[in-house]
């Protein structure tokens, strides 16, 4: 199976570095971004499955970043990391297309579990897309016959 690639987005440097170390030790491929802009930039040239996105950041905040990610990279699964610890802010994120949410302070194991779940969802989605795409090229004999009858098409 393909290995999960995660991106952590938070303005807290120490949180990024420590969590990266932890995840790396658990053999999870992790990149980090210190802001929403940096996250979008990274997504442009790196293949990422799951983004873990802090809601409250200076500059472009989590929800805004989420909307941009979803517009530009619709397949990327996003998990909101909220310090608000309220259902309301999480609901906002979910409505904008986030897969799930985590409340600060969160256990590293919870984080990994939710990330894996999102990753599975992503894989399932990719598979569906793949299937749909292959449908395009795999034609039944009847279809081939039909097309032969209409040479103009």
């Amino acid at each position: 199976m393909e290995a999960m690639k995660i991106m952590l987005v938070d303005d807290e440097e120490r949180f990024l570095s420590t969590t990266q170390k932890l995840l790396t030790k658990k053999r999870i491929d992790v990149v980090t971004a210190a802001s929403g802009a940096e996250a979008l930039e990274t997504l442009n040239h790196k293949y990422i499955h799951v983004v873990i996105l802090d809601v409250k950041m200076p500059g472009m905040d989590g929800n805004e970043t989420l909307k941009k990610i979803k517009r530009q990279f619709p397949l990327v699964e996003v998990i909101m990391l909220t310090g608000h610890a309220t259902v309301e802010s999480a609901i906002d994120g979910l409505k904008s297309g986030a897969t799930d949410y985590l409340m600060k302070p969160t256990e590293i194991d919870d984080l990994i579990a939710k990330a894996r779940e999102a990753f599975r969802k992503r894989l399932a989605l990719e598979e569906k897309i793949l299937m749909a795409q292959s449908r395009k090229y795999m034609k039944s004999p009847r279809e081939i016959l039909k097309e032969a009858e209409k040479p103009g098409q």
Binding site: E12, R14, F15, T18, T19, K21, L22, K25, K56, G83, H84, A85, K104, P105, T106, E107, I108
Partner: peptide, 19 residues
């Protein structure tokens, strides 16, 4: 809300130390 961020870091540090 503000205190949650440092708490998150402490928690991560703890997890790292434990590991």
């Amino acid at each position: 809300h503000e205190i949650n961020n440092p708490l998150q870091i402490i928690k991560s540090e703890y997890a790292l130390i434990e590991m």
